[in-house]
Computed example of a mutant assay.
Amino acid sequence: MLQRIQTIYLLLAAGVSGAVCLFLPYGLNKQGDGLYAYTEPTIFGFYIASACLSLVAIFLFKNRKLQFVLGRINILLNFILLGVFVYWSLTVSGETIVSEKGIGMLIPIISIVLLVMANRAIKRDEDLVKSVDRLR
């Protein structure tokens, strides 16, 4: 289980979504204080759901098809989260101090890249198993 590269990718995606979102602000308010994900329930829920999906997918190593589907659902969830961030950044007017964006808005992009790499590795494993089954 842990010797597979997709497990490492999924573990990194879970770490980025679950832990890093607590430390990196996704924006700044009028006073210049950081806005963190744990203060906004919807964003925090998306992050925790993404981390949980990644962790569940790690333990489904025997069922590669379901693992692949969970990876796709997780990618979709991160795209929705990215869409929320883009919507918020576009609706904030540029004339106020509130328009400061934080580095935390890049977390869904990093998570998407890691999940795509994990899905490619899962697909490679599935193709390898199918090719071995053909030889029997």
Rank of each mutant, 00 (worst) to 15 (best):
T42Y: 14
I109A: 15
A19N: 09
G15C: 05
F79P: 07
A19T: 10
R120C: 15
V132D: 12
N63V: 14
I107C: 02
F85Q: 08
T7L: 03
T91L: 06
I48G: 10
M105C: 10
S93Y: 03
S99E: 00
Q31A: 12
T39M: 10
E95L: 09
L135W: 08
I75M: 07
V116E: 08
S99K: 00
F85P: 02
L12D: 04
M117K: 11
I43D: 03
G104N: 03
L12C: 13
T42H: 13
E100Y: 01
I103F: 07
V86S: 07
R72Q: 12
T7S: 11
I43A: 09
N63S: 13
M105R: 12
I97A: 06
L135K: 12
L82N: 10
I73S: 11
V16P: 03
F68E: 12
Y36K: 03
I73H: 06
V84G: 06
G102T: 02
F46P: 03
A51Q: 04
C21N: 11
L60G: 06
Y87A: 12
I103C: 02
P25F: 00
L24G: 00
I97W: 01
V132A: 13
G32W: 03
F79H: 11
I109C: 15
S131V: 10
A51L: 05
I73G: 07
V56Y: 13
V98W: 03
N29E: 03
A14Y: 03
A118W: 06
G32V: 04
G18L: 07
W88K: 09
G18W: 05
E126T: 15
Y47N: 14
L81P: 04
V56Q: 09
L114C: 06
L128S: 08
L35Y: 01
A14E: 04
V16Q: 03
G102E: 02
Y36V: 02
A121P: 06
T96K: 01
V116F: 12
Y87R: 07
R124W: 05
L115Y: 05
S17N: 15
G45V: 06
K62I: 07
E95D: 11
V92R: 03
V113G: 14
V16R: 05
S93R: 04
I97G: 00
F61S: 15
A13N: 08
I43V: 09
K101Y: 00
S99R: 00
E126I: 13
V69S: 12
I107R: 01
G71M: 12
Y38W: 13
V86P: 01
A37V: 09
I122V: 13
S54M: 09
Y87L: 09
L66D: 15
S111A: 14
N78W: 05
L114S: 10
N78F: 04
M1E: 08
Y9K: 02
A49P: 06
V56M: 14
L76E: 04
Y47S: 10
L22W: 05
T39L: 08
I8G: 05
Q3V: 14
Y36A: 02
L66S: 15
I8D: 02
I80G: 13
Q31F: 06
I73F: 12
L82G: 13
Q31K: 08
L11R: 04
L90N: 04
Y26I: 01
I107P: 01
L55W: 08
S54I: 04
C21Q: 10
K62Y: 11
V116A: 13
F79Y: 12
A57C: 02
R120G: 15
D127G: 00
I43K: 09
Y87T: 10
N78Q: 13
